[in-house]
């Protein structure tokens, strides 16, 4: 039902929508190679890489920006 003023009361409720299903290619991070530069965290359009560099595949759309911006090529894009 539509609320008065189309008010949405639950912050961040877009989490209900798992955009990971959009993905064709999946970023795989090799933590051994990672130099903790935070590029992938800052540049992720979904904000789905946390400070421990865990990628949330429920939401990752597979755009590949993280792999592209990784200075040490620690992220590889694989099908899936």
């Amino acid at each position: 039902m539509v609320t008065i003023g189309a008010c949405v009361k639950e912050p961040g409720s877009s989490r209900n929508n798992k955009t990971g299903s959009w993905r064709t290619f999946k970023p795989i991070l090799d933590k051994e190679k990672c130099i903790d530069c935070e590029n992938c965290i800052l540049f992720c359009p979904e904000g789905c890489i946390n400070k421990d560099y865990d990628i949330d595949y429920d939401y990752c759309k597979g755009c590949g920006i993280c792999a592209e911006e990784c200075p040490v090529e620690a992220i590889k894009m694989e099908r899936g």
Binding site: S14, R15, F43, C63
Partner: peptide
């Protein structure tokens, strides 16, 4: 402060 699950195109610059 912007949750995932939004409908931006993959690789969207606006959400960044």
């Amino acid at each position: 402060f912007l949750a995932p699950g939004h409908r931006a195109c993959a690789g969207c610059g606006a959400t960044v």
